[in-house]
């Protein structure tokens, strides 16, 4: 263990974490005290997830863990072991934006944009389990994400519109398939 002037360094042993991020197998080293958010941002250079509070109150760090929206600041890096993580960087398909991303742009749902990655991930978790939410359901699902710029109006509208687009796409492909 590193020493300087007789004082022991507090650095704790790192663990190897084996996980899946945005569909790719990923291995990384992290200290037990590092949050998943810190690992994503500082170890893996995936800075799309943002830090607003580190206490799970603002939702800017929201990612999907096995399909559930979680605040990555409240998850330890080592807890990602064996899990399937999706971050905002994994939301778009190779060349096409996700409907949520497209609708956020069309509805001018972002001003400063710092909360946007978190909102997109929370909204994706909602639409994955409820493709046809009411305005009230959208607001309930997004209540853990704070936005200080927009008053939420254009965010709610974009999520409702994206849900509609996704339903139409799904219905069209179902019709084409039948």
């Amino acid at each position: 263990m590193a020493q300087k002037n007789g004082v022991k360094a507090p650095i704790s042993r790192k663990s190897l974490v084996d996980t899946t991020i945005n569909g790719e197998p990923v291995e990384f080293l992290c200290e037990p005290r590092q949050s998943l958010l810190e690992c994503l941002r500082d170890v893996l250079e995936l800075t799309g997830s943002k830090e607003g509070c580190l206490t799970g109150d603002c939702g800017a760090c929201t990612v999907l863990m096995d399909g559930r929206a979680v605040c990555s600041c409240l998850v330890l890096g080592v807890e990602a072991q064996g899990k399937n993580i999706v971050t905002v960087e994994g939301l778009a398909e190779t060349t096409r934006l996700h409907a949520l991303q497209q609708k956020f742009l069309e509805h001018a749902s972002l001003q400063c944009g710092i909360c946007t990655p978190g909102f997109l991930m929370s909204a994706k978790a909602l639409l994955d389990r409820n493709p046809d939410p009411t305005e009230r359901e959208v607001r309930y699902a997004l209540a853990g994400n704070l936005c200080r710029c927009t008053g939420y109006d254009k965010i709610v509208r974009a999520v409702l519109d994206a849900a509609k687009t996704l339903r139409e796409t799904r219905d069209a492909s179902a019709a084409a398939g039948s």
Binding site: R41, D42, E45, L46, T47, G48, S49, K50, E51, T87, V88, E89, L91, A92, L97, Q101, F104, L105, E106, A108, L110, G113, I114, T116, P117, L120
Partner: peptide
């Protein structure tokens, strides 16, 4: 129109101050 800096912000590529290293 869609804002010019929009795409970078919805895909997580826009660099805010804390994103610099």
């Amino acid at each position: 129109p869609i804002r010019h800096d929009g795409i970078e912000k919805v895909v997580g590529r826009a660099k805010y101050g804390a994103d610099y290293s």
